[in-house]
């Protein structure tokens, strides 16, 4: 514990120093607030605008959580299916990689044209950004099952089902979680992007309004809250990972 405090001290101090430089620079160079507001101004705005901001914050959180859960479940299911049927995997895998070359920001307007401004196209955007890292991480994790452990299971007469539940899946869990962590931050990004395109609530909407009225301080408020939200997601997933992934250092294939 003492060590982890020591470890986090350096980056913490660094952030403080950066903020101080930022603060001093805006004051000394007299940078106009609409161009770059000082950190003190941003934090003041954070507090004063919270009553009006909170509804946007919770709307985005809700959207991101729903999209994230559906996206992760969908990704896991697809990965397991592809794992079970290698032939389908060979067919679909290249398509999956190719689909990721389409930036979600160009896909989003299409989704609005097809599905309107409701919640469905927004969730669809989040699902699309979430499910890919999950599918790839899960497939890789399942494919990397250690052959010595597999050899033991086969010689000991384990059934296919036992091999999956006792070896392949727990072995892939560490890899799956690295995918889940990426998906969590993507889900917040996806939620904000989807709100830019048209929403009546949400951090994305708040940002668009702030930007069009040159309230740069409010844009920064939105950014800070987005960061906090991502951090919050990340921490929760880290805690769940800590509970579920045992005995291995994260992501490593150490086995003996």
């Amino acid at each position: 514990m003492g060590l982890s405090i020591k470890k986090s001290l350096a980056p913490f101090l660094f952030i403080i120093i950066l903020l101080v430089i930022w603060e001093l620079a805006t004051r000394m160079l007299a940078i106009p607030t609409w161009l770059l507001p000082a950190p003190s101004l941003i934090s003041k705005e954070m507090i004063t605008s919270w009553p009006t901001f909170q509804q946007h914050f919770f709307a985005t959180t809700q959207l991101a959580v729903i999209g994230f859960i559906i996206g992760v479940s969908f990704g896991l299911l697809l990965a397991l299916m592809l794992h079970m049927f290698p032939r389908i995997r060979a067919t679909i895998y290249p398509l999956l990689i190719m689909s990721q070359n389409i930036p979600i920001i160009v896909l989003a307007p299409l989704l609005v044209i097809w599905f309107g401004f409701g919640i469905f196209p927004k969730i669809l955007v989040i699902i699309l950004v979430c499910f890919f890292p999950i599918v790839i991480a899960t497939l890789d994790g399942l494919a990397q099952t250690h052959h010595e452990l597999m050899h033991y299971m086969q010689m000991a007469g384990a059934s296919k089902q036992q091999i999956f539940f006792k070896l392949e899946f727990p072995h892939a869990l560490a890899a799956i979680f690295s995918g889940v962590k990426i998906a969590a931050t993507y889900s917040v990004m996806g939620a904000v992007i989807s709100e830019w395109l048209g929403a009546n609530r949400g951090i994305g909407l708040y940002m668009t309004l702030a930007q069009s009225s040159f309230r740069t301080d409010r844009v920064f408020v939105a950014i800070v809250f987005i960061m906090l939200l991502c951090l919050c997601f990340f921490t929760i997933i880290l805690a769940i990972e800590h509970l579920l992934v045992k005995g291995t250092k994260k992501g490593s294939a150490e086995y003996e």
């Binding site: 050899h151 033991y152 299971m153 010689m155 000991a156 007469g157 045992k246 005995g247 086995y255 003996e256």
Partner: peptide, 30 residues
């Protein structure tokens, strides 16, 4: 027919996410 013998491989092949207690009952568990 698989599983008619109990087996000890060359490398210990213990499962890293199982405790020792959980590892030693794996063969019986199957």
């Amino acid at each position: 027919q698989a599983g008619q013998m109990s087996y000890m491989p060359q490398s210990p092949s213990l499962f890293p996410w199982r405790t020792i207690r959980e590892n030693i009952v794996l063969g019986a568990e199957l």
